[in-house]
Amino acid sequence: MKTESRLEKVLASGALAVTSECGPPRGALPEKVREKAGMLRGCVDAINVTDNQTAMVRMSSWAAGILIKQMGLDPVLQMVTRDRNRLAMQADIIGAYSLGINTMLCLSGDHPKFGDHPMAANVHDIDSVQLIQMVVKMRNEGKFQGGKDIDHPPKMFVGAAANPFADPFELRVMRLAKKVKAGADFIQTQCIYNLDKFETWMEGVRQRGLHEKVYILAGITPIKTAGMARYMKNRVPGMDVPDAIVKRMESVPKEQQPEEGIRIAVESIQRLKEVEGVSGFHIMAIEWEEKVPEILEKSGLLPRPEP
């Protein structure tokens, strides 16, 4: 075991792991974090805490993560390279670890253009791959990125994102390989709606044996409404929502659409469970955390193992 991470233990045990996420509030109300995380208690192995997601200012990922930690749950510290340089990132990593956070996810982050501070400087001192390298180096070599020794290095279980649906598709397996090479321990993918394309990607992943080097958690986002399906299809970069999904959501009356969305999510999980190399699921129920237990229950992913 490389770390104390509960997620690592579950994955190492061979069980399908389950993570979910919690977007911190846009204000200083700790209750909001506790409320969201509370809904996930007992259902997931770790809770991702987003880092200024969609480039909107929110409670910091590590602070919200600590609130979650205090509840006896396991946060995954998300960190984007957009907002901080390598000094600030390493400082936050050490700080988070000193308070018991042992799992993180390395991202580049959405461009500020999409958020409420489009006028902000875009830092990107390092990129997501280099962030993986940095955290792994901190853990494995006990060294800062700059090369000096760390007195009591943080031992993070290191995650990265993969988007099997972005362009160019032919590059997507190579890109995963690159993140594995950089030292990623686990991967959480973009929301999967186009299962065929995901399976094609996984085939490429298996051909390279990457599934044996990294745990891949398949990303699932239940769709609430037909409108949301259309929005994601047309407006969200790097998102692949097939027409069939949009049509299926549209085919039921509005009040039944949430139910249909959950049904789709459950069916997806059931199909993806059978895909070799899928080590678990990452459920991103955006502002719909209360449905996560239901989805997991119906997918046969409960109860969670005690590693």
């Binding site: 959405d110 461009h111 990129d127 997501s128 993969a162 972005a166 970069p237």
Partner: peptide, 11 residues
């Protein structure tokens, strides 16, 4: 995003 190891997922 001046990524040295791109592309990101938004391409």
């Amino acid at each position: 995003k001046r990524l040295l190891n791109g592309p990101c997922g938004g391409s």
